[in-house]
């Protein structure tokens, strides 16, 4: 049998120069079935040595006129690109309205909400004219938004359901619902309290000016190294609940050293939302952020 075409000839005519042997015209041969129209190049494989054309070389092993086979599409697209586009829109919207937005990230139970309530109360004396609003992220319940509203500040609760983080569209929509917030004042402060989770929120840009990682001293000093992405993404680490240090074995210096291993530029403030220790330094840091927003607004 001929090994080239499978015909029943004896193959004796095969020659060493590759010229092959002659066949009677076969109405079922691929050549006879080939349509006159030009095919898409992707449907044809060309043997570089002989110039032979192999139709049906694709995964389906057949060639169907008018239908191309497997083809490649180059995308080179960031998976988070859509989120990042909306985050950029949020950022532009914040800048246009003089809003300083900060994204608070931490594990559950680090004291984020208590810290925000204490901060809002402290700001009433420190910067009485400054509007402050909060976007609260949790999987379920509006408990945290209710705690914020009790301080007098407007708050929007965002429940993510099974979601483990806030994303930029959620924040954009929540901000739009804070009716009139920030319109009355040249500058304002927006706290975004992310879902309590030290892993996932690190990757989602919300349009904030900075991420603030809250780490309570009851959690263990090695957290920055255990969850490095979050501390690498944050501009500030707030070491919270320092009033409890006398009762704990928590090496503050080692904790700060580990945080700087994953992020040499991270700032650190030690504070207690309960006793107010460190609150002055924290308010000064916020003042710096408000000034940065004002400068950006003036430059724009």
């Amino acid at each position: 049998m001929c090994v080239v075409c499978g015909c029943a000839g004896d193959g004796g005519g095969v020659t060493m120069d590759g010229a092959g042997h002659a066949h009677a015209p076969n109405p079922y041969s691929p050549a006879a079935r080939r349509p006159a129209r030009t095919r898409a190049a992707s449907a044809v494989a060309v043997d570089a040595a002989t110039g032979d054309l192999h139709f049906g070389a694709g995964a389906a092993r057949v060639s169907v006129p008018g239908m191309s086979q497997t083809r490649a599409i180059r995308l080179e697209t960031d998976i988070l690109g859509e989120n990042d586009r909306i985050a950029a829109r949020n950022r532009a919207s914040f800048a246009a309205q003089g809003v300083t937005a900060l994204n608070f990230v931490s594990s559950p139970g680090s004291g984020k909400t208590t810290l925000l309530c204490a901060t809002i109360d402290a700001l009433k004396a420190h910067a009485p004219q400054l509007p402050v609003a909060v976007i609260e992220g949790d999987q379920q319940t509006a408990f945290d938004a209710e705690r914020i509203r009790a301080t007098g500040a407007p708050a929007i609760q965002v429940n993510t359901g099974k979601g483990c983080h806030l994303d930029a569209p959620m924040v954009g929509e929540a901000f739009a619902r804070l009716h009139g917030f920030a319109h009355a004042a040249p500058r304002s402060l927006l706290f975004i309290e992310n879902v309590g989770n030290l892993v996932c929120p690190a990757m989602w840009d919300l349009g904030e000016q900075a991420k603030v990682a809250v780490l309570s001293v009851t959690e263990g000093e090695d957290k920055p190294l255990k969850y490095p992405d979050m501390f690498a993404a944050s501009a500030l680490m707030l070491l919270n609940k320092v009033d409890l240090l006398p009762h704990l074995r928590f090496d503050v210096e080692r904790c700060i050293e580990l945080a700087r291993r994953v992020n040499p530029a991270i700032s650190v403030i030690r504070l207690s939302a309960v006793t107010g220790e460190g609150m002055a330094e924290w308010l000064a840091w916020l003042d710096g952020r408000l000034s940065a927003t004002a400068q950006r607004g003036a430059a724009a």
């Binding site: 995964a59 191309s68 497997t70 490649a72």
Partner: peptide, 18 residues
Amino acid sequence: LQPTGGTELRVVDLMVND
């Protein structure tokens, strides 16, 4: 240290059938 590589997260390409 400032990470400069290995932070990519993207779809590179697809092989598709019509």
